[in-house]
């Protein structure tokens, strides 16, 4: 039964994607990536994996249609882009993942001791680490619901496309993030910083969903000159 998905995930592991981390650091295409920086990234990836304390938790909720918008408990999704991305849903899985506070403490320590490069690189590896946890949950969920003939879509979070960041206040409690030690500040930020709350839409298995490795997060976004936009390899 799908209700077995409610609660904390066990055996979550971070898998750092160094390419993703390079993207957070601004690398696009060739140039600048000296052997020294590559070495630094390799070395700090190991450190990041050691420092990460991965945890994840989530709950499955029914989705109600209200006019044009979708409602999940107290959370109301109304943005046209968000809605077109989700399509007709039957359920939504609301979850939270974190890598804990140790990594960011190390980042602060690096900066304090004048090792800015290490600080900045470790910070981006931390982002890549927490992204990998969310991807892992997305993947596991997809496998679980597929057995029930359902399709889990790609996760989205407040701030993606036209989903306002302010909705974090509704989303956060529904994900049960507090139970894995993730706090929400009055200004809507998650602590530890390397935490994610997100929603995965679940619909009957007619598919159209985008796979785990698909660079889907950026194609639908309007910020075309964003520093973090996923780069593409152009041949000509």
């Amino acid at each position: 039964m799908l209700t077995a998905l409610n609660g904390e995930w066990t055996d979550l592991k971070v898998r750092i994607d160094q390419d993703e981390a390079l993207r957070y650091l601004g690398y696009k295409g060739r140039g600048g990536l000296t052997p020294r920086i590559q070495e630094l990234i390799r070395e700090l990836s190991q450190l990041a994996e050691e420092l990460a304390q991965p945890r994840g938790i989530g709950m499955l909720y029914p989705v109600q249609r209200e006019g044009e918008s979708l409602r999940v408990e107290s959370l109301c999704l109304a943005g046209p882009r968000t809605l077109s991305r989700l399509g007709p849903l039957c359920q939504a899985y609301l979850f939270s993942v974190t890598i804990g506070e140790e990594l960011e403490k190390e980042v602060v320590a690096f900066f304090a001791s004048g090792e800015y490069t290490k600080g900045a690189v470790l910070d981006s590896l931390g982002s890549s680490a927490v992204e990998s946890l969310a991807a892992e949950v997305n993947k596991r969920l997809r496998e679980q619901v597929r057995r029930e003939g359902l399709l889990a879509l790609e996760r989205i979070s407040p701030g993606y496309g036209d989903w306002p960041l302010e909705d974090q206040f509704q989303l956060y409690p529904l994900t049960k993030a507090a139970e894995i030690g993730v706090k929400l500040t009055d200004s809507g930020l998650l602590i530890p910083r390397k935490s994610i709350t997100a929603l995965i839409g679940i619909r009957p298995g007619e598919a159209g969903g985008v796979g785990e490795d698909e660079p889907s997060g950026c194609t639908g976004c309007d910020l075309s000159d964003c520093l973090y936009r996923r780069g593409e390899v152009e041949g000509d």
Binding site: L25, G26, K28, G31, G32, I37, G114, E115, Y116, V121
Partner: peptide, 20 residues
């Protein structure tokens, strides 16, 4: 170099550390 896309943040920071 940073502005015209030959250097990226880590390059900038390594130089900053050396300069500091």
């Amino acid at each position: 170099r940073y502005e015209d896309g030959r250097y990226f943040l880590p390059n900038l920071l390594l130089s900053a550390e050396a300069a500091q």
